[in-house]
Write a protein that binds this DNA or RNA. Structure first.
Length: 562
DNA sequence: GCCGTTTTCGGCCCGACTGTTTTCAGTCG
């Protein structure tokens, strides 16, 4: 499946177009097309084969032709052609904060600056001072020096920890802040941290936060700082009466905001961070988000859905689903103990699960070919079951389920025979091994596992590790169809660096009638809470409690496993 | 480059902050 490849290509076109000094709306058009392809929940090659490229939003004749060339020939001559018009170095220079397309183009074209390194040298030597001005070049030099430590997106727990620290610091100074941005939307990775405050002067407090390295800008309404760990923090100060509109603006996403503002324009109104206004400038709403949505003729859109993926249309027809909540979760179906690679014994894990209010815990230690994880043989599983049965007598009505994380081996075979597998309460299959195999082979293995009568759930289907390893390039629509045809469950793994399936595919799966499981994949009692990150993915995938197996009672879950 | 319940041409979200900036372009969120 080449969705990500095509999206990357279009994104590259967007950047090149900027760096070539073209009309900026061209770059915006490429970026929008890239988003369309990235958010697509079907195989772009299918769309192309069926001549439906032009049916996709933001893809017209020009871009369709380029996608066609790439998928037909594997070449992208349009990239090379555009590259030839970009002055050498301009693309790289745009990575420096404060350097946009205009400055990059000028630096590269007029002053022959060919790289960030050269820019640093020239600035230090004072070569560009006359052209750029003294303050600008000093400031730029600072940015260049930091640009080397290119900031990376954070996983959710890290982002939450930093946001908490800042929130506590502000509170300590009697300032209440509200978290907005991608963290509020529950996005799986977070770049910047965004806060709102209704206390004037709170920017002055933020710039004194001990973790601040640089003040990027500091005005009465907006303050931006960079922490020494590289994270950018933005604070917006607003009047209490503007808070709702400001929260919407600062929560984003950008594309969602644009969609809302365009809707306002259609209705002869104007939406900005101060409120919703009619054509004569009278304010119609703004104090709360609910008020603004309502005045726009929309039902409330939860932050997790604000990605311009159809939520505005759904809110217009009152079709926003009641999203899954943490309190709907009644058990966990992927958990490990010291029997394989977990850090705590079964009793400790079970007691922790009970404290979370769960009714059941699916214990899924690894099968034996997962040697690095101390995978269990048939004999060891039988011994484990004795311990489980003893604990179940003691902890009833709480129930520990006899599960397994069954390895799908490199050749597609399973670790155990069907007869033995039938003795488990349920079987989850995983593909860890052989991830360098071709996409076709990996897809075949996954399909075999899913259609195997012994298997109930496919755990973390793509096996991605965010920031470290891209997932298997599986044909996921095929996988979803196989799950549907065989009545199997697909998992959303809650480990913060997995979150697999992701929201786009989880949504597609449920639309196709496939039930999902939202698990923690915990290897310690604390990690049972990772389920909350899985719930965020589920919410971002438009899932209701009905879509999720482990929001059902123990009895119903067991019925599902037959 | 895309798009159209006023448009096939002329728009494309809207506003804060910075700078050698006295009316605005560039950048960013």
């Amino acid at each position: 499946m080449k969705n990500n490849e095509v999206a990357d290509l279009l994104m590259q076109m967007s950047l090149l177009s900027e760096a070539a000094g073209e009309d900026r709306f061209k770059a915006i058009a490429y970026r929008k097309a890239a988003t369309t392809v990235r958010d697509l929940s079907e195989d772009i090659e299918n769309v192309w084969r069926e001549n439906r490229l032009l049916d996709l939003p933001n893809i017209g004749e020009g871009i369709a032709k380029k996608i066609d060339e790439y998928l037909r020939t594997g070449n992208a001559t349009f990239i090379d052609k555009l590259k030839a018009r970009v002055p050498e170095g301009a693309l790289e220079l745009m990575n420096v904060p404060g350097v946009g397309p205009r400055t990059a183009y000028k630096l590269a074209k007029q002053y022959g600056v060919k790289s960030v390194e050269e820019l640093e040298r020239d600035l230090e030597a004072g070569k560009l001072t006359d052209e750029l001005g003294k303050q600008a070049s000093t400031r730029l030099l600072e940015e260049v020096r930091k640009a080397k430590y290119a900031e990376k997106r954070m996983l959710l727990p890290e982002a939450e920890a930093i946001a908490d620290e800042i929130t506590r610091y502000m509170e300590h100074n009697n300032i209440e802040v509200i978290t907005a941005g991608s963290l509020r939307r529950g996005k799986s990775t977070v770049g910047d941290l965004d806060f709102l405050s209704t206390t004037s002067g709170s920017g002055d407090v933020l710039v004194r936060f001990p973790g601040v390295d640089t003040v990027i800008e500091h005005g009465p309404k907006r303050t931006s700082v960079r922490l020494s760990i590289g994270t950018q923090v933005d604070l917006r100060v607003v009047e209490p009466s503007h808070l709702g509109a400001a929260m919407m603006y600062f929560t984003g996403s950008k594309d969602h905001n644009i969609a809302l503002r365009n809707l306002a324009i259609e209705k002869k109104m104007k939406l900005n961070e101060y409120g919703l206004f009619d054509s004569s400038g009278n304010r119609l709403a703004g104090r709360s988000e609910e008020e603004v949505f309502s005045a726009l003729g929309l039902s409330y859109i939860p932050p997790e859905l604000r990605e311009n993926r159809g939520e505005v249309e759904a809110a217009q027809s009152n079709n926003i689903p009641k999203l899954l909540e943490m309190k709907d979760i009644r058990g966990d179906l992927q958990v490990h103990s010291t029997w394989s690679d977990g850090e705590a014994d079964i009793r400790t894990m079970a007691e922790a699960a009970r404290r979370l209010g769960y009714e059941y815990l699916g214990l899924t230690d690894h099968s034996y070919s997962m040697r690095v994880a101390n995978g269990l043989s048939e004999d060891r599983f039988r011994n484990q079951w004795k311990e489980i049965e003893m604990l179940n007598d003691e902890l009833a009505p709480f129930r520990i389920l006899k599960g397994i994380e069954l390895e799908v081996r490199g050749d597609g075979s399973l670790d155990f025979e069907r007869k033995f597998l039938e003795e488990f309460d349920y079987v989850g299959a995983s593909i860890h091994q052989g991830y360098r195999q071709s996409p076709d082979k990996l897809t075949r293995r996954a399909l075999e596992a899913i259609s195997n009568p012994s298997v109930d759930i496919l755990f973390h289907p793509t096996n991605r590790l965010i920031g470290r390893r891209e997932g298997h390039q599986l044909d996921i629509p095929k996988l979803i169809k196989a799950a549907k045809d065989n009545g199997k469950i697909l998992e959303i793994d809650g480990q913060p660096d997995r979150l697999d399936l992701d929201e786009v595919w989880a949504r597609r799966a449920w639309e196709e009638g496939v039930t999902l499981a939202v698990d923690s994949d915990a290897h310690s009692p604390d990690q049972l809470e990772f389920t909350k990150y899985g719930v965020l993915v589920a919410r971002r995938g438009w899932l209701t409690s009905k879509a999720v197996l482990n929001s059902q009672s123990l009895k119903d879950v067991l019925k599902n496993f037959k």
